[in-house]
Simulated assay, not measured.
Amino acid sequence: MGAGDNRGMDSTPANRQVDARDRDGEGRARNARPRDGLGRPLPYGTDGVERQPEGVVRAPAATVAEAQRLLAAGKPFHAHEVFEDAWKSGPEEERELWRGLAQLAVGLTHAARGNRAGGPRLLRRGAGAVEAWAASSGRPRPHGLDLAGLAGWARALARDAERDGSAVDAAVRAPRLRG
Rank of each mutant, 00 (worst) to 15 (best):
A127F: 08
G74Q: 02
V168N: 04
H143Q: 12
D5F: 02
H110D: 15
G45T: 12
P175C: 03
L97N: 00
L157R: 01
E131T: 15
W133D: 00
A158V: 04
A171W: 04
P41V: 13
E93K: 09
R178T: 15
L38G: 08
G25S: 14
G27L: 10
R99F: 08
A61C: 05
S137H: 06
E84I: 03
G45R: 10
A154F: 04
L108V: 08
H78T: 05
R28K: 14
A151I: 01
D146M: 05
R124E: 15
L122G: 00
L104H: 01
G126I: 00
G119E: 01
R139D: 15
S166C: 08
Q68D: 13
T63H: 06
A132W: 07
R16E: 15
P41S: 12
R159W: 06
D36V: 07
R163S: 14
V168I: 10
G165W: 09
G128V: 12
D24L: 08
A127W: 01
H78G: 03
A127N: 04
R16L: 15
E66Y: 04
A158D: 07
L70S: 03
H80F: 14
R176N: 10
R113A: 13
A174C: 13
G107P: 03
G8A: 09
R141G: 06
L97V: 03
A112S: 15
L147W: 03
E81H: 06
R163P: 05
A111C: 13
D169V: 04
E96Y: 06
D24P: 04
G152A: 15
M1W: 07
A14S: 13
G118N: 11
A171T: 07
A112E: 05
S11Y: 08
G138S: 08
R139P: 02
T46R: 08
E92P: 06
S89W: 02
Q68K: 06
M9G: 14
R124H: 05
G4F: 14
P142S: 02
R35W: 04
L108T: 02
P43A: 15
E81C: 05
A154D: 03
A105K: 02
D24W: 07
G107H: 02
E50S: 14
D22C: 08
R51V: 05
G119V: 07
T46H: 12
G25R: 11
D164Q: 11
Q17M: 09
A32M: 12
S136G: 11
R139H: 11
V82Q: 01
D146L: 06
N6W: 14
A86T: 06
R21Y: 06
R95Q: 15
E50R: 13
D10Q: 10
L97E: 02
A158L: 03
A117M: 11
G74W: 00
W133S: 02
D10W: 08
D5A: 13
A72W: 01
G55E: 06
W133F: 14
E84T: 08
A154R: 00
L104P: 00
L71C: 09
G25H: 10
L38N: 01
A112F: 07
A171Y: 00
F83N: 00
